[in-house]
Simulated assay, not measured.
Amino acid sequence: MRFKDKVVIVTGAGSGIGRATARLFAEEGAMVVAADLRGAVVETVAGQDNMLAVQMDAGAEGDVERLVATACERFGGIDVFYANAGISGGASGIFDSTAELWTEVLRVNLIGPALAIKHAGPRIVERGGGAILCTASVAGLRSGAGGPAYSASKAGVINLVQTAAQQLATSNVRVNAICPGLIETGMTVRAFEYAREVGKEDKLGRLNPLRRAGAPEEIARVALFLASDEASYVNGQAWVVDGGLSSSHPVTRQEFGKPAF
Rank of each mutant, 00 (worst) to 15 (best):
V10G: 06
D49W: 04
I78K: 05
F225R: 09
G47W: 14
S228Y: 02
V54Q: 11
E104C: 00
E43Q: 14
A145S: 11
L52I: 11
I117E: 02
I111R: 01
G146V: 05
G18C: 09
L226N: 02
G12A: 05
R66N: 14
A20C: 09
I17R: 01
E28L: 12
R196M: 07
T135D: 08
I9A: 03
L24W: 12
A223C: 15
L168Y: 12
A69Q: 15
K6P: 00
T103H: 14
L101S: 12
S232N: 14
V7P: 03
S15R: 15
L210E: 13
A215C: 01
T98P: 09
P250H: 07
G147E: 07
I219Q: 02
Y82L: 08
I117D: 05
E28C: 08
R212H: 10
G77W: 12
G12T: 00
T185R: 00
G62M: 00
G144E: 11
P180F: 02
V138I: 15
P209K: 12
S92Y: 09
S15H: 13
T163A: 13
N109H: 11
L67R: 11
D5L: 09
T70S: 11
F192T: 07
M1S: 13
A53C: 13
E193L: 13
L115D: 10
N109R: 09
G14R: 08
G243R: 01
A136F: 00
R74V: 05
N50M: 08
G156Q: 09
G59H: 08
F75D: 02
I78F: 06
A223W: 01
K258L: 15
T103V: 04
A114E: 00
V189Y: 06
F25T: 04
N176A: 06
E217T: 05
T170I: 07
I9M: 04
L52Q: 10
K203V: 10
V54Y: 05
G47I: 07
D202S: 14
E27D: 15
N172M: 13
A215H: 02
A165R: 00
G89M: 09
